[in-house]
Design a protein around this nucleic acid. Structure first.
Lengths: 342, 342
DNA sequence: CCCTGCCGTCGAAGCGCTTCGACTAGGCCG
DNA sequence: CGGCCTAGTCGAAGCGCTTCGACGGCAGGG
């Protein structure tokens, strides 16, 4: 492996000149640059990452902490991951993958060892124990998701409250007035992931504002969970004409159960789901959905990280606005549009 | 951040002694060790990864190259990833995540810069362009999957040929003699991922050995692909009584299509699927399946990597034997067991 | 009792890079 | 025409760690 001094010798310049050609931190004449670059290419020189990190205390590596076994669907996690990796590469950074189950220790390890320049955490909980730990690190960090107290912390996520409101608005626009929320599994609420409560909050508030009659229920796993949830909804809100489903895993069994009971979608029951595009189109009925913009959120998380690293002041929290995509699961209730639009 | 010399001073020893306590490469008396460890704990000392890499030319980081957009299902990829990360941690290594779309350049970058000690590649193709590049790196590498010419390369994967044979054996044991293979999408074959052809090879050979009548067809995406595939199978092998499905994505539409056509599983048609446990149990019919042992394969890949790093000679290729798990999708054809068992 | 060898420790030489200060030439201003 | 600034380059001092050779002391063998 050639070193910077091999390059310097080959180009007939000093080591520092080679370094400045590479970093651009000082002006170097065009001819010198050309000679240095030629030497680099010829020798196949790659700067040694460790040496660089040691001398500059910058690593060009980001840590990304992903949840391992969670209730949020795996493909969505993977979308975040690929978005972050791809975006990081556009800033010439690489990504070190940590799992959430290492907890605080993992963060301290990679940060303490100066393996990374910054950290991005997914699956943030209401009162996440990792947050105080982050404050003690010398590296900045960005959260994907929101803790209860997001003061002074950089957070990025879909605006779940606005998403709920949009869903209700969409259904109200189609004449629906009795609408139920099929929420995430109870485990999600217990674990304290705030997207569930943010969504519920937005749902409740919008329902009131729009004068809708609503109920909301979490929905456990499998056909069983779906069945129970539907039963409760039917009991508490007879004549329900639309469902907002904020639970990706529940969608397949839910559709299956409705079919089995002879309830047609959207003729008898309209559905708006919160899920990624490909899930929405991969089901028996193409679902009208609010997209989970994993790619956008991941990209923004990296951008925010880079701003932080450059010492740029940046909005502490970034809420990505929702996008509703109309497909085939939402029907208009005849003669009720005007009533609901009032 | 305290450095090793801070620790040395606090413990009243030299830097090298601290280093030897940490690495265990030379004997250090128990008392000295205790004092050093106390100092480390008290100061909250973490060795600087870059400095360590520079001095020792070891990084304790593994590169893992994952496919981005592929036909193999995302949850399975994620299982490999988490297995590799978890296993790497048990060897005190971290994982740098690369995407396959960076191609050869990505490998050369991280290897050239000495960012990693070794590389693990997923989604290896028949004549993968990255393989010659790997040979030029100073770091060892391990493949998850097999290229056409695996000579001298460390490879790990499920034994797909044996898996196919096991599936056929299982069905034959249940009295089935006319069996069709629903294969991966044509794109998989075109892309040259060898697991498809390895499976097909094992299938064909076992069919002959067991005296079965079989056909094999790739299966394109969606309901459409399933429908075409089934039509061809029925045309070419009338009276088919069992399906081996080597295509995870096809399973939901396949079951749906069979149901719509009034073909009951397993009464009219038995199914053995090749898919991870959770997919098999998450469908309307709990499928008898050959497991995709992502966790085991990932773990073995890391073990192999560690052996390579320790200069230990290790079997070049590791084929993980299949495991068939009986569930509810396989029926016995009455009165035909003895006939098929002969 | 001396030599050998091992145990436990130290000192110092790098590992390959960045970066700061310094220096030389010119160019521009007043 | 002197002072000053800028562009372009060099030299050297680290960054924090590992590791090799060396050394003193103590045990065991001849």
């Amino acid at each position: 492996m050639p070193t910077i001094s091999d390059v310097a010798r080959a180009a007939g310049v000093s080591m520092s000149t080679v370094s400045y050609v590479l970093s651009g931190r000082r002006p170097i004449s065009a001819e010198t640059q050309a000679r240095v670059k030629a030497a680099i290419a010829e020798l196949g020189y790659h700067p040694h990452a460790g040496a660089r990190a040691l001398a500059s205390s910058r690593t060009s590596v980001l840590a990304l902490v992903v949840p391992l076994r969670v209730d949020v669907s795996v493909p969505v996690i993977m979308q975040f991951v690929t978005a972050v990796v791809t975006a990081a590469r556009t800033y010439n950074h690489d990504v070190l993958l940590l799992t959430k189950d290492e907890g605080t220790a993992g963060l301290e390890r990679v940060a303490g060892a100066t393996m990374v320049d910054a950290l991005i955490l997914m699956d943030v909980e209401r009162d996440d124990v990792r947050i105080p730990a982050l404050g003690r690190l010398k590296q900045p960090s960005v959260l994907i998701g929101f803790p209860d107290d997001a003061a002074g912390i950089a957070c990025v996520d879909l605006d779940f409250a606005a998403t709920a409101a949009e869903c209700l608005g969409h259904l109200a626009g189609h004449g629906h007035t009795r609408i139920a929320l099929v929420g995430p599994s109870p485990a999600v609420y217990e674990r304290g992931t705030t997207y569930a409560s943010r969504f519920l909050g937005g749902f409740t508030e919008a329902a009131e504002r729009l004068g809708l009659e609503t109920v909301a229920h979490p929905c456990g796993p499998g056909v069983r969970g779906v069945r129970e949830c539907l039963a409760q909804i039917d009991a508490e809100l007879p004549g329900v004409s639309a469902l907002v489903v904020h639970n990706e895993e529940a969608l397949p069994p839910l559709l299956e159960e409705l079919r089995a009971n002879g309830r047609r979608v959207p003729e008898d029951l309209s559905i708006v789901a919160i899920c990624p595009r490909d899930v929405a189109v991969g089901l028996p009925v193409r679902l009208t959905s609010a997209d989970i913009p994993a790619h956008e959120v991941g990209t923004i998380a990296v951008e925010t990280t880079m701003n932080l690293l450059d010492g740029r002041r940046t909005p502490g929290t970034r809420l990505v606005p929702p996008t509703i995509i109309e497909r085939d699961s939402c029907a208009t209730r005849r003669g009720e549009i005007s009533a609901s639009h009032g």
